[in-house]
Amino acid sequence: MKIAITRLEDKAAGDRSLCASYGHDCYTVSPLRSEVRMEKVAAFVEAVHRGEFDCLFFSSALPAAIVGPRLERWPRVVAIGPKTAEVLGEAGIEAEVLPSFYSRDFVPYLGDWLRGRTIGIPRADVPNPALLDAIAGAGGVVREERIYALTPTGTELALDDADAVLFTSAMSYREARWRPRDGLLLVAIGEITADAMRAGGHPPAVVGDGSLAGTLEALKRHGQVRP
């Protein structure tokens, strides 16, 4: 199967080899582009070096790749998934990994430790009020630094040769320009993306666990039960 995967161009590393391990080919389609705000990056790194945070939370691999190599010291570090932890590891930073690929699990994972602690989160300029409210509700203090913006490319996704399109985030689905067609398998990387697709009138046939590997496993199971 040939799978079109919505990615930022700088987040696609490893997709093709992982897809090949499941017997598929894949390529990147980019409904969004990232615009890094270097002054925000510098401000966040300086705050880390001043010891202003008790914990850093990296909710995707891109901020890990931007911030990680610039850190000379750091507090407790939590990554949303193994890929993000791997990127941090390349910068010499050992990170704990959440038990699932969703930021909603950050507060339950830290539990009572959060009370009175300050959490630093470098992230995209995309609101996540549920996470902020959860941290505050657990007695923590959160400081976000929106170190990059995500803007629509405005380019129609090249899906003519694809057997499936895999949307990797709710925003990548909502901002994508594309044309559904018969025979194109719709895939969501996780439940949040799937909810956005259902709300938009394009319910996915396959829903992953929030990771590419888990989505490919779900696709494998889907293939096994299809008539």
Rank of each mutant, 00 (worst) to 15 (best):
D10C: 08
A12G: 03
A13M: 15
A13R: 15
V29S: 00
S30D: 03
S30A: 12
R33L: 11
R33Q: 15
E35W: 12
E35C: 15
D54K: 01
C55V: 15
A64G: 10
A65G: 10
I66W: 04
R70T: 09
L71T: 06
L71G: 01
V97E: 03
P99S: 09
P99M: 10
S100D: 13
F101M: 05
R104V: 10
V107N: 00
W113S: 00
T118Q: 02
G120P: 02
R123F: 05
I135T: 02
I135K: 00
G137K: 08
A138Y: 08
G139E: 05
G139S: 09
G140N: 01
R143T: 08
E144T: 13
R146S: 06
L159W: 13
D161H: 07
L166N: 02
F167W: 10
M171G: 03
E175Q: 08
R177K: 15
R179F: 05
P180K: 06
R181E: 10
D182M: 12
A188F: 05
E191F: 09
E191L: 11
I192P: 02
I192K: 12
T193G: 03
A194H: 05
R198P: 03
R198F: 10
G208Q: 02
D209M: 14
G210L: 07
L212N: 04
A213K: 13
G214W: 06
A218Q: 08
